[in-house]
Computed example of a mutant assay.
Amino acid sequence: MPSNPISTSTAPLKLLVLGGTVFLGRHVVSAALAAGHDVTVFNRGRRAMEFHRPVSALIGDRDADTSALRGHPFDAVIDCSGYRPAQISRVAEALETPWPHWVFVSTISVLERFAPGQAYDESAPVTAASTGYGGEKARAEETLQALTGGQCTIVRPGLIVGRHDPTGRFSYWPWRVAQGGSVLAPGRPARLVQVIDARDLAEWCVQLAVARTPGTFHAVGPTQSMQSVLDTCREACGAPARWVWRTDAELLAAGVTPWTGLPLWLPEDDADFGGMLLGRRDKAEQAGLRSRPLIDTVRDILSEQRDDPTRATFAQTLTRDAQTRLIESASSSH
């Protein structure tokens, strides 16, 4: 794949979005349309597309049939759905040459480990695994780097949050705080966490595609305390909620599963994941990444929940009964 020179052109792009109908891809399409670009999506066509401007659609499956891509020249690709090396290779083989600049949305999970208390940057070691989410994404990164001679953009997000999130991994907190009362709060109040709004990430991916910016970037949000996150949720919804903090040791002793039992919670001394929410964003900021205030993200999530109450779910979260028992045991021990 030939090199793509860095460009600051603002002319509309013929942009291919791989994915584009669920979460981040949906925001990427919206951001690209808002910037005036000509957008085509390639996916399996299983979900309806609802955008304010027309979007071209090519139907296929990057695990099996990418023939719909043939004969369609593009200026840039934003890849929101690539997970395995073969998926990268199939799409590249179907695209016309010279190939467009490729922005690949990877993940911080490609890193080997997240040492407790240690902030990490793009020089951190990548896993050698070939299986699992992080391993497959890491090998997909390598495949794209080899195909492009390094003239591509690798974006490694942390936890992506906001409207249309199908997981509820962060949305749980605004939804729970809005219910008021005693809220089980995990770990230390000053424990540091990071989230990135899908809209900010999407807009930045479009900017990277326009500028044909090569390189690898960790796309993480500003670092803030868990208490600050909860206080922001309370400010956004105005609910009379109060925090009942339980330590890492108390939660583990109660059998709470890190990350899923209570979203955003990871024991700080965990040898492999204790520092997962401590990514450095210096390089990404230098390349144009900007983040809106967290309260804007929270308000958007609450608005979505009001529009569609069925979205206020996160199946893996500790049950309310289990949370109540932990809250009551905390109260009785103080």
Rank of each mutant, 00 (worst) to 15 (best):
T148S: 15
R246L: 11
R191N: 04
G288L: 04
G215L: 05
P222Y: 02
A330C: 14
H218W: 07
A115W: 04
V29F: 08
R299G: 09
P125H: 12
G134K: 06
T257W: 07
S303F: 01
W245M: 13
S3T: 06
K14S: 13
L208Y: 08
T260M: 10
R306T: 07
A119R: 15
S291I: 01
L277C: 05
G215V: 04
S109C: 07
T107Q: 11
M226Y: 05
A241S: 14
G221T: 01
M226R: 03
L201E: 01
C205M: 11
E112W: 07
G20Q: 08
G36F: 02
A68M: 09
P174Y: 04
A241W: 03
T40P: 07
T148Q: 13
L262N: 05
V155F: 03
G36T: 02
Q151C: 15
A211K: 05
A140L: 04
S329H: 10
D296Q: 14
K14G: 05
E112A: 15
L289A: 04
L16H: 12
A198Y: 01
R176E: 03
R163M: 08
T143W: 00
P100C: 02
D248M: 00
A35R: 05
L326H: 01
V28F: 07
T216A: 15
R113G: 09
G149Y: 08
S291K: 02
D65H: 10
D307Y: 00
Y133A: 01
S9R: 03
E96A: 12
K283D: 14
G275Q: 03
E235I: 02
V244E: 06
D282E: 11
D300I: 02
D121T: 08
